[in-house]
Design a protein around this nucleic acid. Sequence first.
DNA 1: ATCGCGAATGTTATATTATAACATAATATT
DNA 2: AATATTATGTTATAATATAACATTCGCGAT
Lengths: 154, 154
Amino acid sequence: MHNCTSHNDCIADALHRAEEICEARELRFTELRRKVLELVWERHGPIKAYDILDKLDNRIGATKPPTVYRALDFLTDNGLVHKINSLNAFVGCSHPLTHRECYFLICSDCGEAKECCNSEITDVISKTIRRNEFLTDHITLEITGECRDCRGVH
Amino acid sequence: MHNCTSHNDCIADALHRAEEICEARELRFTELRRKVLELVWERHGPIKAYDILDKLDNRIGATKPPTVYRALDFLTDNGLVHKINSLNAFVGCSHPLTHRECYFLICSDCGEAKECCNSEITDVISKTIRRNEFLTDHITLEITGECRDCRGVH
DNA sequence: ATCGCGAATGTTATATTATAACATAATATT
DNA sequence: AATATTATGTTATAATATAACATTCGCGAT
Ligand SMILES: [Zn+2]
Ligand SMILES: [Zn+2]
Ligand SMILES: [Zn+2]
Ligand SMILES: [Zn+2]
């Protein structure tokens, strides 16, 4: 679904953006948080907390669930990572400075998640929210199915 | 958030609709499935699987997780109940014949979930999906926050 | 430099959510 | 009635997540 020419660049960019954001906000982008973000960015799709845990184990020795969940909390709280609730998994945010709520197209075949945020969706959802006089905390929009590539569309 | 004059009627209606739908589709609306649906409809908000389990225990003696999850699977598969992924909880569908995908406004204060499905949202989401040549399996739209009543709006 | 503070991480234990696998019972089909 | 199918019961365990407390780290004040 994603056609990054060099995924190493994707990862490097994500880490670099995270650094900048944390510096600007006076947040501590620790080694642990960096490693977890790096693992989240291993591919353009959601990864499970316990898979991150396993990969950390391989790199830095036995790690425990709270370690990973705390790092993920930090990253999601600061918009660097999104939780995909329908999968209990986590994915890197493609544009952490742009906005907080992201919408996703999630391919159940290749496992990739593509952000499909757009103002048209936001506008019409906002309208519904206003009509209901609702005070929004968070919007989850997750669309599962099969992506263009996996469908074999040319 | 909901102003049903008699919630017993809500429950009775939901059970009756379920009966009709199951009959029309030649599905078996068993006692267990009925009881689980009834418990889901105890209020206009999501209920957790293990809370259903506890309430079944009180009514019909020790019940085990698979019993509840299988009944919930049946009910969700047939559009009588929706799973709220952001809460790991289940809520009765207000209009099981109208459509499969429902959008929710979920109040974190009173715990109610209001369906806010409308074609405007569906249309704009569909457009995004088409533009991405995506083949949709399921759409999850969950908006959490504070409802009109809990905000104290008049 | 070291003391003290708050933030981050380590550690142990456990809570919560969900399913696998197999046995039995109920219902439908022949 | 015999057989197949579907639903439920049962045991065990997998997968996801957090509570509670101990230790360490980073950093400013003394
Ligand atoms: Zn890439
Ligand atoms: Zn795909
Ligand atoms: Zn009601
Ligand atoms: Zn409310």
